Computed example of a mutant assay.
Amino acid sequence: MQRTRFDTARIRAARQMIDPVFLDSPLYPCEALEPGLGCAVSVKLETANPVRSFKARGTEVVASLLVAGGPRAAVCASAGNLGQALAWSGRSRGLDITVVAPHVAPAAKLDRIRALGARLELVDGDIEAARERAVTVARDEGIRLVEDSLDIETCEGAATIGLELVDSSAGYDAVLVALGGGALATGVGHVMKALSPRVEVICVQPLGAPAMTHSWRQRRVTTTESTDTIADGVAGRHPIAAVLDDLLLVADDAVLVRETSIIMAMRMLVEHAGLVVEPSAALGIAAILEDRERFAGRHVVTIVCGSNVDPDAYHRWVTDLPS
């Protein structure tokens, strides 16, 4: 493998910094999904933890290192999941946490950030506007800026999911990973290529937020002026060059899926697997729905990465879609 920012030994060491409540998440075959998808599907369930997403694997590493030496305060920009995770990890270690979020972020996520004791600042605009404000807060207050995907600790925490997939005996031949900022995709992708290179790593992004996928395809950073997707957790517009460099080395493919497919995937997950998920977590199933021939007869793993979803919006999406 060509050199990336990752080191497998560091990823193994990261497991020791993460609260066990976030480790060894359930991985199981979901036979009820097979008839509708035409392939065997195993689910890696990253929602069965206190913040209901994979993000705390990374924030646990960040917070542990801050306690070991550095400012006792941190700020991040978040559409919701990273903010919750950093708030949880910081609270358990006595750190002061500030989260900057777009005011249009799901109310359920914002309420949970507040409940976890973080200071929440809302800004107009999208996640990119929140990132700009977080940079200013970090500079003005002299605190740690946690930049998801750019900070290697967030990627190494996510990469521990890959270690668990490799250690399993699931017998899958492809892993479907939601693609946003890239921490999950590059982390899991690195472990797959380092330890189980036969497994195909397929990244999935909404058609309405395609910046990282376009960047991967063109092998250079490509930005977009706006996003238009219900999958707020992966709706970035400005890919990070260092993250793209890592992704180019570990992703076998990057695909875009339509909103209707995301919603249908959410419906399938609740109807056939009993899983209420946020749109980003349904991207893997959406990819299968849009290309059944590609996955026919195969055994794939999809990482269900989050379940923090506004109940009213979820009900509207899942019940209003025509059968």
Rank of each mutant, 00 (worst) to 15 (best):
H272V: 02
A265E: 09
L283D: 02
E46I: 03
S196T: 07
I127P: 01
A105V: 05
V309L: 13
P29Y: 05
T59D: 13
R133P: 08
R57T: 03
S89Y: 02
V204K: 00
D253G: 02
D19E: 13
E147T: 12
S215H: 05
T224M: 14
S92F: 06
A296Q: 13
L249H: 12
E271I: 06
R139H: 14
A287S: 15
D24G: 03
R220Y: 08
K193G: 02
Q218C: 12
S89W: 02
I288P: 13
P197R: 06
T302Y: 12
D148E: 15
V201C: 13
G36Y: 09
A286D: 02
I152S: 00
A282S: 13
G69W: 06
S149W: 00
E225W: 07
E164G: 07
E31G: 03
D7W: 03
R93T: 06
A108G: 11
V61Q: 05
M266E: 06
P322R: 02
R15A: 13
R114T: 14
V177H: 00
D96T: 13
G125P: 08
R5T: 09
W88R: 01
C30G: 08
F54E: 04
I240G: 02
H190Y: 15
E225C: 09
G162W: 01
F6S: 04
M17D: 11
G162T: 07
D312S: 10
L283V: 08
A85I: 03
R57H: 14
D140F: 01
V67Q: 15
S323M: 11
L45V: 10
V135D: 15
L275R: 10
